[in-house]
């Protein structure tokens, strides 16, 4: 059987199938399909995204979770790329008090940096950890800081006719992007014919990121906590100790909880001077410029 042989194109579906678009007919609804059968864990996607946005350390718009499954010698490795789902019913948008985050008519869930007050309500709301607060310091300080940020589905590229940066970089060819409302698009065909799943479908957020060949277990939230290696515990603790996320709620595992709460308090107090400086500065601009 040569590779030139044409195979029948039968829609196939095994088991549960996430329905396709809930978008508005006639409008675009951009979506990403991640074919996990082709993901090789190279993390080119994460790096391409970080360089595209000059993203600071300690925050991620996309990342790849890695899980080793099975007992020796029947061990397999599973990769799970993650990013904002650009939900059709985005909890983040619903809960934002200032309309700093909003749903674009083409499906993107976007962020207006100049409106965002950094209250992090949206971070609490997002069930997927897709959002982060941009730290105080970054390489290019003309880019937003101390406001919330997330994957934008690279709208600045898409509007210029380019695929998102992570899609362009995907070595395995696992990430595909397009308009699911266009039946001729690659993504629409995949969503229609493949068994696709989304993350946490039970929450009713209607994600626009579909996975082919996803493994239920690693999509599951508690698994990430219960099945960590010791290395992951140490690393996360280092992250909490050293990354100035200004969240004042991190608890280092293995330390007494209330002393951690106390340290969080101190952390908060320590930010007061620089925030005061920033506030004064802002008022100066506000009043005199």
């Amino acid at each position: 059987m040569g590779n030139q042989e044409i195979q029948p194109k039968i829609p196939r579906s095994y088991g549960l199938q996430t329905p396709g678009s809930k978008g508005v007919a006639g409008k675009k609804r951009y979506a990403m399909v991640i074919d996990l059968r082709k993901c090789i864990g190279c993390m080119s996607c994460s790096i391409a995204c970080k360089t595209e946005y000059g993203l600071p350390l300690g925050v991620w718009r996309t990342w790849v979770k890695v899980v080793d499954k099975g007992k020796y010698p029947n061990t397999k490795r599973v990769f799970m790329p993650r990013l904002c789902n650009h939900c059709d019913y985005p909890v983040c948008v619903r809960n934002c008090p200032t309309q700093a985050t909003y749903k674009h008519e083409d499906g993107f869930v976007l962020q207006r940096y100049n409106r965002c007050i950094g209250c992090r309500t949206c971070m609490v709301a997002c069930p997927y950890n897709a959002r982060h607060l941009l730290p105080e310091k970054r390489t290019d300080d003309n880019l937003p800081r101390m406001v919330v940020d997330k994957c934008t589905f690279c709208i600045h590229r898409v509007k210029k006719g380019l695929v998102p940066s992570c899609v362009q970089a995907c070595v395995g060819g696992a990430r595909l992007f397009g308009d699911v409302n266009d039946p001729n698009s690659e993504v629409a065909k995949l969503v229609a014919t493949e068994t696709v799943t989304v993350l946490k479908p039970e929450l009713g957020t209607s994600p626009s990121v579909y996975y082919i060949g996803a493994d239920w277990e690693i999509m599951d939230e508690p698994h990430s906590y219960t099945n960590r290696t010791d290395q992951m515990v140490d690393e996360f603790n280092d992250f909490k100790r050293n990354h100035k996320g200004d969240a004042f709620a991190d608890i280092i595992e293995g330390e007494p909880l209330m002393s951690e709460v106390g340290k969080n308090w101190m952390g908060f107090l320590r930010t007061i001077p620089h925030k005061a400086k920033e506030t004064l500065h802002a008022f100066k601009i506000f009043l005199f410029d």
Binding site: G58, W60, W63, V64, K65, V66, V67, D68, K69, G70, K71, R82, R120, M123, V124, N129, H132, L133, E217, I218, H223, S224, N227, R228, T229, Q231, M232, E235, F236, F239, K240, H243, G245, A247, F248, A249, D250, I251, V261, N264, W265, F268
Partner: peptide, 18 residues
């Protein structure tokens, strides 16, 4: 089946002591 997470991104808890 045994399964272990060997890599994942880290996230802060957004709302804290304050």
């Amino acid at each position: 089946e045994e399964s272990v997470v060997t890599y994942n991104a880290f996230h802060h808890v957004a709302w804290g002591t304050t």
